[in-house]
Design a protein around this nucleic acid. Structure first.
Lengths: 221, 221
DNA sequence: AAATTAATTTAGGCATGACTAAATTATATC
DNA sequence: GATATAATTTAGTCATGCCTAAATTAATTT
C-alpha cells in the first residue's frame, strides 16, 4: 500500500497536468508546501514504483498505474466533499480541507455507501467531475466566465476550489454550480461584470470571474 | 498537536484502566500490537508531555490532561461508529475498524454535525457510552448476562466490540442493544442459556453470554 | 537467601519524509 | 560562446515510531 504522502504527490501531479501545466519538481514542491529537495526524494521513490516518469531534469508525468492511483484519490476526495456538503451541511469553503484528511483513510466499502447515498453523483460541490470507479472522468467543455458578453445567460458549471475566502464570497452570492445568471453589462477595458442572479444585480470583478466557469450560454432575448 | 500513535496509546490506556485492569508496559504493547520496547519509548514521550504517569517498572496511569485527550478520541470513535452504522448502514462488526482510522482525522466541526444528525446520542452501536464534549461519561450499571436466571426478562444493554465474528453472529440473532429477551432455561453446571427473542427460542453458549451485558432485569410472570 | 524466570528498559538500527547546504545541470543574458 | 541565474539533485541531518538484542530490575521458585 502507498503512504499518504505518496498519494498526495500523485494527486498533485495529476491535477497540475489536468490544468495543462508542465509539472516540474519546483512547481510540485510549491503545490505540496515542501522544499524542492524533498520532492526530488519522493519522486525518486515514485519512479522506482513505476508510478511516475521523469528523465533527469525533465518534465514529470504519471504512468498508467500512477494515473489510476491519482484518480482513485481524487474520486475519494470529491465524493467526500459532496457528502460533507450535502449530508452534513459543511460550508463549501471548508469541505476541501476536511476531505484532504479523510480521502486517505476511507475504505472502499464506505466510499460505495457514500456514493449510493448521494445517488451516484458526477460532480463535487465546486462542479469538478467525480471520476467513476474505473477511473473514467467525464469530459466537460465549460467556458470561462471572462468570455461572456452583455445579454448572455448561462449556468454556473464549476468554480476554483483552492481559495476558501473566494468560495465563501461566491457562496454568499449563491453562485453555486447550477445557479443561472444573466450578464447585464460588461465594463469596457477588461472591466467588471454586472450580472443578474435571481433578480438581483451583482458586480463581479474580473479576478473573481476568472475562477468561474459556465455552461449553457445563450443570448437573452 | 498529538500524533495518531500517541492518541492510540492514550486511548488504550484509558480503555484498559476502565475495564479495571492494571496497565503495564507489556499489556499495553500487546493491546497495540507493538513490542514492549516500543511501548516504553512512547510512554517516555507521553510522560514528558505530562499525559501519563508511571514510575519506573510501575503501573501506568493517565494524568487529568491525558484522560481528557483519551476521552476526546473515544468520543470521536463512538460517534463515528454510530454514524457509520445508522447513516451509512455499515454492518456493526465493521464499524470499529473504520472508526479506528477516522477518529484521528475528523474535525471538531464535522464531529458536532455528526452529533447533531444523530440527535446527540449517548451510546454507540455496541451500547458503550459516548462521552460528552466535556469528557463526562455517563455511568452505567449493566449486568453480565451470565448472572441471569430462568424466567427473567431483560434488555440487551451492551456487547463487547472487539470480536467482529462474534458481533456478526449476535447481529444475525438481532441481539443489538435495545433488544428484549426472556430466559427460557439455563442448563446446569454452567451450561448454555436458552432464551426467547421475539418469540424464537435461541441457545446462547456461556462464552458468548460473557460478552453480553443487560439491563431492566425482571422476573417474568 | 540464591537462582531462575518474567517484565521492563536501554542501546542501536531502519524506514519514512521532511529539512538545509552544497554541488550539479539548464537556461538566459551579454 | 562565456557567464550569470535559476532549477534540480545529492549529501547529510533530524524527528517519528517501529524493530531486535542485550542489559537491567522485579517476581517467583527452590
Amino acid at each position: 500500500m502507498l503512504t499518504h504522502a505518496a498519494e498526495d504527490y500523485l494527486k498533485s501531479i495529476y491535477k497540475l497536468q489536468e490544468k495543462g501545466t508542465k509539472v516540474s519538481t519546483g512547481l510540485l514542491a510549491e503545490t505540496l508546501n515542501v522544499k524542492p529537495a524533498s520532492a526530488t526524494g519522493m519522486l525518486k521513490k515514485l519512479k522506482a514504483m513505476k508510478l511516475v516518469c521523469q528523465e533527469r531534469y525533465q518534465e514529470i508525468t504519471l504512468t498508467e498505474a500512477g494515473r489510476v492511483v491519482a484518480l482513485e484519490i481524487i474520486r475519494h476526495h470529491r465524493l467526500l466533499e459532496l457528502y460533507l456538503f450535502k449530508a452534513l451541511g459543511v460550508p463549501w469553503e471548508n469541505v476541501h480541507e476536511e476531505a484532504e484528511k479523510l480521502e486517505h483513510v476511507i475504505s472502499e466499502d464506505v466510499e460505495e455507501r457514500i456514493d449510493a447515498v448521494l445517488g451516484y453523483p458526477t460532480a463535487d460541490p465546486h462542479g469538478a467531475p467525480i471520476p467513476d470507479k474505473n477511473g473514467v472522468v467525464a469530459q466537460t467543455a465549460y467556458i470561462p466566465m471572462t468570455t461572456l458578453r452583455k445579454a448572455q445567460t448561462c449556468v454556473v458549471a464549476e468554480v476554483s476550489d483552492n481559495d476558501s475566502a473566494l468560495l465563501q464570497y461566491l457562496g454568499e452570492l449563491n453562485l453555486y454550480p447550477g445557479t443561472a445568471f444573466r450578464v447585464l453589462d460588461v465594463a469596457p477595458f477588461e472591466g467588471p461584470f454586472t450580472i443578474d442572479i435571481a433578480g438581483h444585480p451583482v458586480v463581479i470583478g474580473r479576478e473573481v470571474a476568472k475562477h468561474i466557469y459556465v455552461a449553457d450560454v445563450q443570448e437573452a432575448k
